[in-house]
Design a protein around this nucleic acid. Sequence first.
DNA 1: ACCGGCGATATCTTCGAGGTATCGCAGCAG
DNA 2: CTGCTGCGATACCTCGAAGATATCGCCGGT
Lengths: 310, 310
Amino acid sequence: MEARHLRYAIALAEHGHFGRAAASLGIAQPPLSKQIADLEREVGARLFDRTRQGVFPTAAGEAFLARARRALDEIAAAAVDAGRAARGETGRLRLGFIASALLDPLPGVLSRFGRERPGVRLELHEMATSRSGSALVAGELDVAFTLGPPRGAGTERLVSVPVGRDHVIAVVHTAHPYAGQQSVSADQLRRQPLIVSAGEDEPAVVAGLRTLLGPDSPALGGATVARDVHTIIGLAASGVGVGLGPSRMRAVPRPGVRFCDVTPRTPLPDLVLSFAARDRSPVLRAFLDTVRRNCPDVGAALDDRLRHHR
Amino acid sequence: MEARHLRYAIALAEHGHFGRAAASLGIAQPPLSKQIADLEREVGARLFDRTRQGVFPTAAGEAFLARARRALDEIAAAAVDAGRAARGETGRLRLGFIASALLDPLPGVLSRFGRERPGVRLELHEMATSRSGSALVAGELDVAFTLGPPRGAGTERLVSVPVGRDHVIAVVHTAHPYAGQQSVSADQLRRQPLIVSAGEDEPAVVAGLRTLLGPDSPALGGATVARDVHTIIGLAASGVGVGLGPSRMRAVPRPGVRFCDVTPRTPLPDLVLSFAARDRSPVLRAFLDTVRRNCPDVGAALDDRLRHHR
DNA sequence: ACCGGCGATATCTTCGAGGTATCGCAGCAG
DNA sequence: CTGCTGCGATACCTCGAAGATATCGCCGGT
């Protein structure tokens, strides 16, 4: 049985007349008669009563037509849904990210993307860079914000684009002596109790601080360790010491604290956007586009990587 | 787009391999490639990713396949439903009947039919014979139990079969002097307060009583009038008088009353089963069959009428 | 009894589904 | 680096069935 048979049966039921139904279908009357006859033979039941007053569905015909209409609706919807999915209007985007990405690029990117693609279901997974990398390779994620490009098996199939430069900054209580300063020096930091991150950013931030304060600095060894940047800022606000973290901390202004540059400027690994190079999914493309428009300096780099990977 | 395209896409998604999917469909690989390509062109979206590891649906493909599966399910269900309806296993039967039919043939017929055809929805409409007749002609009913064959415009297109003979009987309170009698005479009736029907059976019953008691009998003129037979029996049970009604009253035995024949035996119009002569609906056929098996003496008459009307 | 409208049937045409042969391409072993 | 291999795409042909044209048979109305 083909969709044609359903369309013909429905047209015949609507017109109640073989000739007019055939005309509405753009075919001649005899082929319609034959198709209906074939259909009735295949179903094994008479579907229409041919009377002088017109052609009317039998009880079996009514039952058949109800299902046929739904079938054709499903077929039409299949094409529409596929088109929407292909245009990236519907679908799913599984996004991995390190906690600190929640500070700066994510709020803007996600609200914008949610507004532009209301039909896309977002799945957000906070995870470490290495897990994002393997999840991308395994096809369990579509994109990820990571700290530096992910390393490990299969990551050569990923495209990674720096989204923003990052460096160490300090956060202090408003009443702290450094609060008025534009920047804080390494010497000043060595004389203070410090608060550093033990979260995802830890290895990178700690490595940066090590170069800043000198290896085996006692100030670093005795530092308070916090799980994430919000805790660092909270502890600094309560006067426990000087918080040190990524410059993206500035994105969460909070009464009671001041942010200061640290001299010498100590770079941290870039925040990076990663995705599978082969992934041509329109939802991903739309997301990349949103990121591009939200993070001005990303555009060129992204285009370059995309061109490079065919 | 044809059902074929849906079947092919689903097979391809299941096998993840053009060659094997084609084999499972009983066709060669190139036609499958072409059909899928045609489908993708018509939908306007790539539905499958061809990789070295296999063929996988894209996001658009997943959306399409979900609908396609439902569409094919509907098509299969259409054939099944039509078959069921054609065999009379499902459907609807609109049955008109006069109130007194509820006494005798209906309880047995309906319970048997409901057991044999659980999928058929019964619509029961109590109505006068004349309304049943016009409703049958207008196609608003499928069958009806009427008092005598329906008369009026279009009723020549109906088939009417007598289902049972009927005559006047009397119903009296257990303590009534007539209660012990086998039968009651017209003379005896003229000396008693009577209870007669004003419902559907009225003209026929009243006409019967008129011939029984004589025209303009004061006993008839002064009779208590009840809307239906249950009321007649109830009033007789409470000693108001002697109830007169169709012999089918016997089918509702009730403590406190006795039924007596009336002499001379006074016939009433037959209870008749009517339906449209052209109606070939399997549900109707099944119903007629049930009636035939429930009312032994109907069989021959029914077969005769059916033969007569082609 | 004749006529007209409608669905079914008969016969032919044509388009496209499906078959066969072959190509192009990417991964892989040597 | 280079054949080798497996797979999907392409090219071309075949044939069956959808559709067109012509005609028939049937019933209902004048």
